[in-house]
Computed example of a mutant assay.
Amino acid sequence: MANHASADKRNRQRITRTARNRAIKSELRTTVKKARTALKGVPQESATPVAAAVSALDRAASKGTIPAKRASRVKSRLALALHKASAAAKTAAS
Rank of each mutant, 00 (worst) to 15 (best):
A19M: 09
K25Q: 10
T48H: 14
K69I: 09
T65D: 05
S6T: 15
I24M: 13
A68P: 10
L80C: 04
T16W: 10
A52S: 01
K69A: 11
A61K: 05
N3E: 12
R17H: 01
N21W: 10
A89F: 08
A89D: 11
A23M: 03
K90Q: 15
A47W: 00
R10C: 09
R29L: 09
V54R: 11
D8W: 14
T30C: 08
A79N: 15
R22I: 08
V32Q: 09
E27K: 14
K9Q: 12
L80A: 14
A2C: 07
S76L: 08
K33C: 11
Q13H: 08
T31L: 01
A35K: 08
A2F: 03
R20H: 15
Q13Y: 03
R59Q: 13
I66M: 06
S62N: 13
A71D: 06
V54A: 12
K34N: 09
R10I: 11
A68G: 14
S46R: 03
A5V: 08
T18W: 09
D8K: 15
A5K: 15
S94Q: 14
A61C: 10
K69F: 07
V32E: 11
A93P: 06
R36F: 02
S62W: 10
M1L: 14
S6W: 02
A19K: 06
V42C: 09
A81L: 00
R77W: 02
A85R: 00
T65I: 12
A7C: 01
R77M: 07
R77E: 06
L57N: 03
R10E: 07
A35L: 05
R17T: 06
T31N: 06
R77G: 03
L57G: 02
T65S: 13
E27G: 15
K90Y: 00
A87P: 02
L82A: 13
T65H: 01
A92P: 07
T16L: 14
R36Q: 04
T31M: 05
V42P: 01
V74S: 05
A81M: 02
K34R: 14
S76E: 10
S62V: 08
A89E: 09
A68V: 15
L39V: 03
Q13R: 09
A47C: 02
A56T: 09
A93L: 13
A7T: 06
E45A: 15
P49K: 06
G64C: 03
N3R: 14
A61S: 11
V42G: 02
R77D: 04
A5M: 05
N3W: 11
R36D: 00
T37K: 04
R20K: 12
A88Y: 01
A7M: 01
D58E: 14
R17G: 01
S86C: 11
R36P: 02
V50R: 01
L82C: 05
A2I: 08
G64H: 00
R77N: 08
I24C: 09
